[in-house]
């Protein structure tokens, strides 16, 4: 430990400011009422990825580490993706509509909301 070590304080501060700005953009994306929520989804997902990348590269120093990071993290990320990947086909991306009580209740509420809109709408 020597005091000849070059400080990275300025870089860290810059990364922190960038992270804060990105968080503000996320909140603004939520507060601005965009009709298509998939636009908000795309924005906040991209921001989360960018923030995580900043933290991992600079705060966790992976930018400055050697090739071992690929050896260690590559298989980990591959295995990590396996659980949601395995579940997705059965739970989220099937061709049929779920036949569960919650789904029926949701459809009933939607139908009630649509009919009340028709009643309220001026003729």
């Amino acid at each position: 430990m020597t005091d000849s070590h070059a400080s990275h304080g300025r870089t860290y501060l810059m990364i922190f400011v960038i992270l804060c700005c990105l968080t503000v953009v996320s909140v603004i994306a939520d507060e601005v009422k965009v009709a298509d929520r998939s636009v908000v989804l795309a924005i906040v997902a991209a921001i989360a990825m960018a923030k995580a990348t900043c933290v991992v590269l600079y705060f966790m120093h992976l930018k400055f580490e050697r090739g071992w990071k690929y050896l260690l993290l590559g298989p980990t990320l591959l295995l990590a993706a396996s659980v949601p990947f395995a579940l997705a086909a059965d739970l989220a991306f099937h061709y049929y509509a779920n036949d569960v009580p919650q789904q029926r209740e949701f459809e009933r509420l939607e139908a009630a909301s649509t009919s009340s809109d028709h009643v309220a709408a001026p003729h």
């Binding site: 990320l77 990590a80 949601p84 990947f85 579940l87 989220a92 099937h94």
Partner: peptide, 21 residues
């Protein structure tokens, strides 16, 4: 830990996508 939390968060996303309403 990455594997653990990816499983949690990934499952959360999948459950949510599969639950209309």
């Amino acid at each position: 830990e990455i594997m653990l939390f990816t499983a949690f968060i990934g499952t959360f996303i999948v459950l949510r996508l599969g639950s209309r309403g």
